[in-house]
Design a protein around this nucleic acid. Sequence first.
DNA 1: CATGGGATTGACT
DNA 2: GTCAATCCCATGC
Length: 213
Amino acid sequence: MSERAALDPRTTAFYDRSVHDVALDLLGCVVRHGLTAGRIVETESYHENEAACHAHIGLTERTRPLLGPPGVAYVYRSYGIHALLNAVAEHDGIGAAVLIRALEPLAGLPEMRSRRGLDRLEDLCSGPGKLTQALGIDVDLNRSSLTCGPIEIDPRTTAGTPRQIVTGPRIGITKAAELPWRFCDADSAHVSRPLPPAMRRRAQARPAGVASR
DNA sequence: CATGGGATTGACT
DNA sequence: GTCAATCCCATGC
C-alpha cells in the first residue's frame, strides 16, 4: 500500500503538472489570506486548448499570467463585480489554471461574516465570488505568488483529504460546456451548487474513487 | 473609439 | 424560475 508522497502546494512543482491533476490535488488543501482560511472543496480546470479558457485566444495583456510560470495567482474581475481566484498550472508558456470555486470556512470567521454581510457558514465561501470576498482577495493580487504569499495554500491533512470526489460539467460557461472538468468533495456542504441527487446517490454507493458526471 | 459578452451573485416573480 | 448590477477587455468599424 505504499502511496507516493503527495506534492506540496507550497512548491512550484505542485503546479507544474497537468491542470487536472492540480485541480484534483487542490481539493482538501487550505487557502489562507490574512486572518482567514478555508479548505478547498470545489475546483475547475481550464486549459488553452478549449474555448472556455481565457488563454484560448492566446497571449494578451489579460492572459499573460495564465501563460506564465505555474504557482501564480490569476485573479480577474467577473461581471464587473466579483474577483475570481485561479491557480496557474502547467509549464511556463502553456495557458492553464485551476479556478477555486468553493471553500469550507476554517479561520477568521468574524472577518468573513463582516465582509460578506451574512451569518450562515454555508453562505460565506460557497462560490468563486463569495470566497474571494470572504478572504479579502481582490484583483490587486493578480500575478502574486501562491508559494510565497500573500495568498498561501497549505497541504491537505489526512483528515482534510476528501473521502469521495465527484466530477461533472463546469458551471456558468457556454463554450466547451460538455467537458467534465469540475471537481467536488462529495461530502461537503460548502460547494457552490448542490450536486444532482442522482449523482449523490451514486457517489455514496461507490466505495472509493472518482464518480463521473 | 463604441460595443458586447462574460469562469457571478442576490433580489425578486 | 428571471434579471440587473457593473467593469475589463477583445473585437470591429
